[in-house]
Each structure stands twice: as structure tokens, then as C-alpha cells.
Design a protein around this nucleic acid. Structure first.
Length: 425
RNA sequence: GGAGAGGUGGCAGAGUGGCCGAAUGCGCCGGCUUGCUAAGCCGGUGAUCUCCUUAUGGGGAUCCGAGGGUUCGAAUCCCUCCCUCUCCGCCA
């Protein structure tokens, strides 16, 4: 959520930001509501002040005097009720509108309408070349008996999978390696609920707007299956006022992630690329409200993820996501796209975002600065490793002509030291 | 799932209808005193919104888990929800 006072002062900044993100919103309408609300607030507060003053007299007054004051009070009550109702109504409208005003993107964010206009800023490694006809991960895994899409569909519908044997172990290896990598860097590991209150979804910026992408429990509980550990982890200190000395907070969490993938019917229907559930290790940073420090963290969490891909010997590129492809809350986002031979292209495996105060304001996540002033924190997050898509990369890039798969060195300790998995096909 | 207790300021903990934004203690900040980083003494010490003034400052409103209600008036009474704790049941 953006700061209403800031919006009042610099509406043009927000208009331009919304244009760059291609997100329609009615800023002038919101400001008009705000002006009316403040006018009503003055009325309400004057009436309340009068009420409070008269109320004090009631206690002391007696006889006629008391009757007179009570009469005025009951009259006042009606007027107050009307003004209050009007004010409350406007405030609700304003809050709802405010949740939809996008955070202006950083100046350096490239102009562009969608992901086709994201700007490649770095490339590490080149697309893998094979001296044989490479298999796609689905064919490879099925041939090895590592995956079962059919039975998964019977259990849970389409876009699901069952990993079997060494591929199941490879998933755990990947997750554990990613987690250990971050713990070595001083990130505090958290094991968190992924079934979260919808308030957390609002707090992290997924709602309103992302409801269709999330699984919701029935009406008995106001709970939603989070699409990423970012939601519970960023919400961890919600409602708190942290001490500046305790910042930055660096957390890493492994969780299952749930995505409805509504509106993607017919897109990437085969394989592990687009699935309803996967495992992910996520990194989250919470720090003071300082744009420079935020940017430094952004670079750091990006390079943390790059290190994982480099260790796994997977070619990748980094793109600076353009305005039109940014979410409402993000100041800037760098996606990492890893090479997926079956797609003959780069597929998004990581997404590093920084939000400035956008999430913290919604979450009431604050800290007390050196001057004793309470301010909203800055938050950031990035993938460390997401299972399904990274499994595609490992299987496809490291496959051998005989159908076996080479295990990259850092994963071997988690697989009993084996250098390859599978049998010759 | 059943029974009970409770949620108050940075912390501890009073407060059962107006004198309570809230005693007291601790902590913290400023000052005094004492020849030494201790004790003592004095003063100060929450947040949000809004208006006026803007160097500073001042007025008002709201906030005692959240939301409703009763009342001229609610931290105090009633209802709903959330959370914590204890006991029982169930369970991984």
C-alpha cells in the first residue's frame, strides 16, 4: 500500500507510475474522496469534542440544568451518527482504492508492455549443446520410471505429478542444498505455515487482485494456501515495531507452494513447467526504509540465487522486468531465466523483488529508527530454488546420451555421493 | 471437541461506569547530588489521524486483543470473533 499523504503531495508521480506499469487506477477520484473525507472528519471531531465537553457537565449538573444538557446531547447524537456513518463509508472506499494504487517503479525500470519487453542484463553460460538428440524432462523421467503424471491426475487432477525414486531424492537434494547455501550465508531458516489467513495475502500484496490464483479453504475458515513462503515469512513480524538494531532480518524458508494457474488452460500443459504444487526455498529480507540499502539487498539476494545456478552448472540469464510486467507492489524486479533445452529457450526459475514500504505498510511491519521515530520497513524477496522448474533444468541440461543424468557436484553429498542417477536406456 | 482463566503503555502490573491515555514499579531520556560505571533526588518518557502555526509549538479526535451493542458517558456492562494459558478428550 502506498502512503496517502505522499499521494496527496505528488499525485503525478503515482499517475506516471501506474502508466508505466500499465495498471489502470483512478487517482483523481481517490483524491476527491480523500478531500471529502477530511472535511467530514472535521465535522465529526467538532461534534465529538462538543459531546465530550457536555458529557463532563452531566456528571456535575443537577435538576433543570442537567435536563437541558441531556436534551442537547440527544440532539447532538443524531447529527453525530450521520456524520460518522458518512466518514466511515468514505474511509472504507479510500482504503479499498488505496490497496489498488501501484507502487511507482524505480526510474531505471525499462519501459515496456509485457514480458516480451523485459531487458536482458546478464547472461551466464550458453545454451547447452548436445551431440545427441536430447530428451525432454517428461520423456526422460517417464523412461526412467521417475515420474507418474497419470496417477497424479487421478489423485489430484491435471498439472500434478508424482516423483518416484531417485527423482524424489533429487528434489530433496536440491531443496536441502539451496537451504544450506542460505544458512551458510547467515539467513535464519524458518519453517512456516503455508495455510495462511487472507490478511497475509493482502499484507504481501497478492490480494486484492490475485484471488483467482490462490486456493481458498471453504467458508468455515478464512485460510488460503500461499503460493510462496514469501507470504508467511514476510508476515512473520507483521504488526510489530522492531528495533533498528535487530535489522536487517534475513530469513530463508522451505515450503510447498500452491498455484491454481487459472487462465492458463492449454498453456504448458505437459511436464513440470506449470504445476499446482511444488517445493521452493525462498529468501526474504526486512530492513530499514533506505532506498540505497534496499537496492544493495536486492543485488545480494539476486546473486545468492545466481550462485545456486552456477553451482548446479545451469546456464541462465537475468532480465530487468519492464514496467508493464511488474506487479502493483514491486519497485523493481529481476527475473532469472534458466536454460530449458526442451523449450529451446529460457524459462523463469527465480524472481527477485524489492518493495520499499509497500508490503510493510499493509502488514504494519515497522521499526523504531535512531531518532525514536516509528517507520515502515523495506522488504524484499527472491527464490533460492523452486523444485519443479529447477528439476527440468537439472534433468535436461545434465542428461547423457544413454539417458542417465549427471548429478552436479554440490548435490552429490545429498545423494549418497553418486555422480549420476538412472540406468542406461 | 468439552470445561475454565486471561488478553491494559518498552516490560511487569493496578484499575468493575464520568475525577483514566490510564496508578505503581522497572526500563529509558534529561538534570542534580555524591571525589570514582553504585545508591539517592527532581523532571520527562506511547501511537495514529486532523487542524492551526511552522525554528520550535499549540488545539482537537481516536486507541486498554478485534468488531459490534447498551449508555448522556465504556478499559470497566452485554454480544461475536481472534489469540494465549490450564485441565479433559482426540490425535501425528
Amino acid at each position: 500500500m502506498i502512503d496517502l499523504k505522499w499521494l496527496r503531495e505528488e499525485p503525478e508521480l503515482f499517475r506516471a507510475g501506474a502508466r508505466k506499469k500499465r495498471i489502470p487506477c483512478d487517482i483523481d477520484g481517490l483524491l476527491a474522496l480523500d478531500a471529502r473525507a477530511r472535511e467530514l472528519q472535521r465535522t465529526v471531531e467538532e461534534l465529538r469534542a462538543r459531546q465530550n465537553a457536555l458529557g463532563k457537565q452531566v456528571a456535575k449538573a443537577t435538576g433543570d440544568e442537567k435536563a437541558r444538557v441531556l436534551a442537547e446531547l440527544s440532539e447532538l447524537k443524531g447529527a453525530l451518527k450521520d456524520s460518522e456513518a458518512g466518514w466511515e463509508g468514505l474511509k472504507k472506499e479510500i482504503d479499498a482504492g488505496l490497496l489498488r494504487i501501484p507502487q511507482p517503479p524505480a526510474a531505471e525500470v525499462p519501459e515496456g508492455k509485457d514480458d516480451t519487453e523485459n531487458k536482458e542484463i546478464k547472461r551466464v553460460g550458453e545454451p547447452t549443446r548436445f551431440d545427441f538428440e536430447p530428451r525432454d524432462h517428461g520423456a526422460l523421467a517417464e523412461a526412467q520410471g521417475w515420474i507418474d503424471f497419470e496417477r497424479a491426475a487421478r489423485i489430484a487432477g491435471s498439472r500434478n505429478y508424482v516423483l518416484i525414486g531417485d527423482l524424489a531424492l533429487l528434489e530433496f537434494a536440491l531443496m536441502r542444498f539451496a537451504l544450506d547455501h542460505m544458512v551458510r550465508k547467515g539467513f535464519v531458516p524458518l519453517s512456516v505455515p503455508v495455510l495462511v489467513r487472507s490478511q497475509c495475502m493482502v499484507g504481501t500484496g497478492y490480494f486484492p487482485g490475485g484471488e483467482e490464483q490462490a486456493y481458498r479453504c471453504d467458508e468455515r475458515d478464512d485460510l488460503v494456501l500461499a503460493g510462496t513462503a514469501e507470504v508467511p515469512v514476510t508476515s512473520f513480524h507483521a504488526g510489530e515495531t522492531l528495533a533498528e538494531a535487530d535489522l536487517p532480518k534475513r530469513y530463508v524458508a522451505l515450503s510447498s507452494c500452491y498455484r491454481r494457474e487459472a487462465g492458463t488452460y492449454g498453456k504448458d500443459t505437459r511436464g513440470l513447467y506449470r504445476v499446482h504444487q511444488f517445493q521452493k526455498v525462498e529468501q526474504v529480507v526486512v530492513d530499514v526504509a533506505d532506498a540505497e540499502r534496499s537496492l544493495a539487498h536486492h543485488r545480494e539476494i539476486l546473486s545468492n540465487a545466481e550462485e545456486v545456478l552456477q553451482a548446479l552448472e545451469i546456464p541462465y540469464r537475468v532480465v530487468d522486468v519492464c514496467g508493464g510486467d511488474l506487479g502493483a507492489g514491486q519497485v523493481q524486479k529481476f527475473d532469472i531465466e534458466s536454460w530449458m533445452p526442451s523449450r529451446k529457450g529460457w524459462g523463469e526459475t527465480h524472481s527477485a523483488s524489492r518493495f520499499h514500504e509497500y508490503q510493510a505498510r499493509r502488514l504494519e511491519l515497522r521499526y523504531r529508527d535512531a531518532q525514536g521515530k516509528v517507520r515502515h520497513c523495506h522488504t524484499l524477496n527472491n527464490t533460492v530454488a523452486a523444485s519443479a522448474r529447477l528439476l527440468i533444468c537439472v534433468l535436461e541440461n545434465h542428461q547423457q546420451a544413454d539417458g542417465r543424468v549427471r548429478v552436479p557436484a554440490p548435490l552429490r553429498p545429498y545423494l549418497g555421493g553418486r555422480e549420476r542417477i538412472g540406468r542406461a536406456l
